[in-house]
Computed example of a mutant assay.
Amino acid sequence: MIRIVLADDHPVVREGLRGMLSAEPDLEVVGEAASGPQAEALAAELRPDIVLMDLRMPGGDGVESTGRITAAGLPCRVVVLTTYETDRDILRAVEAGAAGYLLKDLARGELAEAVRAAVRGETVLAPTVAGRLVDRLRAKPERPRLSDREVAVLRLVADGLTNAEVGRRLYVAESTVKTHLLRIFGKLGVDDRTAAVTTALREGLL
């Protein structure tokens, strides 16, 4: 039996969801919450398999609660169920650890199957949401590329060496090191050594 907690601030919505899910022989609604914090408390107390989480509730933000439930290591997966599908909402939910992002216009059978899929460890996304994520990834700027020598220079800078020390280590003039750094700054879109190292680490270039 798959145990579910519903989190939505509208009682009518919760009643409808309960009716849809309870009609399935393998699904059971074990708790209802009207806010994010209430959902967190029920997730900790009841240890359900799934929390169906609305995004915008006056008693507490669903995304923030999703993040806290995920960070707590509770044995449940959070699936967002909302009417909102803006890029910002979708990205915030995914970054918070949501196992899925569904819209409230889906049919009963689709909702039930999505819950089952989430319990199996799959990521469940409404088709329009999946499309938005794909578009977002396609639009993402290509990661900057550094030459082998630029990487070598930046690694030594990251170790705390001065330009002169980097030059001696690589057997090049200090002016050559400065030239490499200027090129690195331009590729990474930064203005100083610290920002260059930080950005390179974040981008997985070092």
Score class of each variant (00 low, 15 high):
M1T: 15
I2V: 15
R3W: 11
A7I: 06
H10C: 02
P11S: 11
P11L: 01
V12R: 13
R18L: 00
L21F: 00
L21C: 00
A23G: 11
P25Y: 10
L27G: 10
L27K: 04
V30T: 13
G31T: 12
G31N: 14
Q38G: 13
A39G: 08
A39W: 06
A41G: 09
L42G: 08
A44P: 13
E45F: 03
E45M: 06
E45N: 01
R47M: 14
R47D: 06
P48W: 08
I50R: 04
I50T: 11
V51A: 06
R56L: 08
M57L: 06
P58N: 09
G59F: 10
G59S: 10
G59K: 05
G59Q: 12
G59I: 07
A72D: 10
G73F: 12
G73R: 12
P75R: 13
C76S: 12
C76M: 07
R77T: 12
V80Y: 01
V80I: 15
T83H: 10
T83F: 08
E85T: 12
E85F: 06
T86I: 05
D87H: 07
A93Y: 03
V94G: 03
A98W: 01
G100Y: 02
L102R: 01
D105F: 01
L106E: 10
R108I: 12
R108D: 15
G109A: 14
A114D: 07
R116V: 14
R116C: 10
R116G: 11
A118Y: 08
A118I: 11
V119L: 07
G121M: 08
V124L: 05
A126H: 14
V129K: 03
A130H: 06
L133G: 11
V134W: 08
L137D: 01
A139W: 00
A139P: 00
P141E: 11
E142Y: 02
R143C: 03
R143M: 04
P144M: 03
R145T: 15
L146C: 06
D148Q: 14
D148T: 13
D148K: 13
D148F: 07
D148C: 05
E150Q: 12
V151R: 08
V153A: 10
R155N: 05
D159M: 13
G160F: 10
L161T: 09
T162R: 02
G167M: 02
R168C: 01
R169N: 02
R169A: 11
Y171C: 04
A173Y: 02
K178Q: 12
K178M: 11
H180S: 04
H180A: 13
L182S: 13
R183P: 00
G186L: 11
G189T: 04
V190R: 00
T194G: 04
A200P: 10
A200Q: 03
R202I: 08
G204P: 13
